[in-house]
Design a protein around this nucleic acid. Structure first.
Lengths: 222, 222
DNA sequence: GTCTATAAATAGATAGAC
DNA sequence: GTCTATCTATTTATAGAC
């Protein structure tokens, strides 16, 4: 692997493990057993590394949040979304831990973020509309926009919420699955009589994962 | 006012206006036209200033979140809560902008925060139960705990969500009122037929405030 | 491309005079 | 209690040799 790619890869790992604010460019260099000068040959500064990681993140999001096909099984639409959320939170958790700070200090990154944010908002909106069309949920049309924002906020700051409201700040897959269950609870009161049972089954599935019981399908891929 | 109190007061104002991470002890001192040495005579370090502010914040929370009296008008219970949330978000917005970072670097403060967090969770729990008892909402008993956590997360990270998802990061009263409306939307699907109209009226009230229309009761007190 | 050595920039904090 | 002057530590970033 090229040095440039190794720097990006190591940065993701170190940021996720120790928190972005606790990892300096020197830490990254020494972790890779290269010199700081070498690192600065490949990247002008730390923010350029983060912007590079963010591009990877944005690509990941675009791919994993597949466009909703109306023909799909409506229940599958929902689990696809939740699995994509899980994957993003897990693999890029350092971003979610520190989002306001990271964005406030780098206007260029903030602008990248706003772009992705808007695209994701559209996807969530589509998801909600699809569930409505498939008669899985029933919701006032006026509330869909606000509801989509609530979902987005709940997902985006779940990591932050866990880190602040618990003693133990280690990120685990179980912790993330608990967050997905909160998202399911947001949908719950809108679920139609017809789909109450399928949604209950999805909830049971993620509850098992949240309690550390292994799933028949194992850990999701990247 | 004593110098020590002036330092705390100025710090709150500067932190709220510019963000905690952009305000150094030297900034605080020069804002008050005192020397850094003088500031350090009164506080051992910046974290001690923040802990001092946090104590003020904790007191504010304890007072403004009055214990729920079952005898009260159930609608009043809800507006009391929302007004208390507004006041906290407005007067201590710097804390909400930066919570995970501030708590992660100071274990003593984190422990103070966990204490207040748990107390607030209890209050929210009581609020939900009171609304159930008064027949304002109907909710599965199993969901109350998770629902209370969702409310808490939504409130705590509303400022962060706004700052990351908008171009303009200025905090306004209107922005905060929009957050309260999201909390009302969380309650909405659980509201009983009987209380649909009163809740609609509360929503209209906060919608007016969120749109910058002045309310008959004016800005809430500290 | 990579290294060593070091400069530059902050921010946090202290010593000692008044 | 307050000031001036300064020190230390940290982190980012660059120059120049190999």
């Amino acid at each position: 692997m090229k040095t440039k790619d190794r720097i990006v890869q190591a940065s993701i790992e170190l940021f996720n493990a120790k928190g972005e604010r606790n990892v300096t460019t020197n830490h990254i260099a020494s972790h890779l057993s290269i010199s700081p000068g070498n690192l600065y040959y490949h990247f002008r500064n730390k923010e350029e590394i983060i912007r590079n990681i963010f591009t990877k993140y944005a690509d990941h999001m675009q791919v994993s949040f597949e466009p909703v096909k109306p023909s799909q099984d409506p229940v599958k639409i929902l689990t696809n979304y939740l699995d994509a959320v899980f994957s993003a939170l897990y693999h890029f958790n350092f971003l979610y831990d520190n989002l306001p700070v990271i964005m406030a200090r780098d206007p260029e990154l903030k602008s990248q973020y706003l772009d992705i944010h808007n695209k994701m908002m559209d996807k969530i909106h589509q998801l909600v509309v699809s569930l409505e069309v498939a008669n899985v949920i029933k919701m006032d049309a006026d509330d869909i926009e606000d509801f989509a924002n609530i979902i987005k906020q709940q997902v985006t700051f779940w990591i932050s919420y866990c880190k602040t409201s618990r003693e133990d700040t280690q990120i685990t897959t179980e912790m993330i699955y608990h967050g997905l269950l909160k998202v399911l609870l947001l949908f719950k009161p809108y679920v139609t009589q017809e789909y109450r049972e399928p949604v209950r089954e999805i909830t049971a599935h993620y509850t098992a994962l949240a309690n550390g019981e292994s799933s028949e399908q194992g850990q999701p891929d990247v």
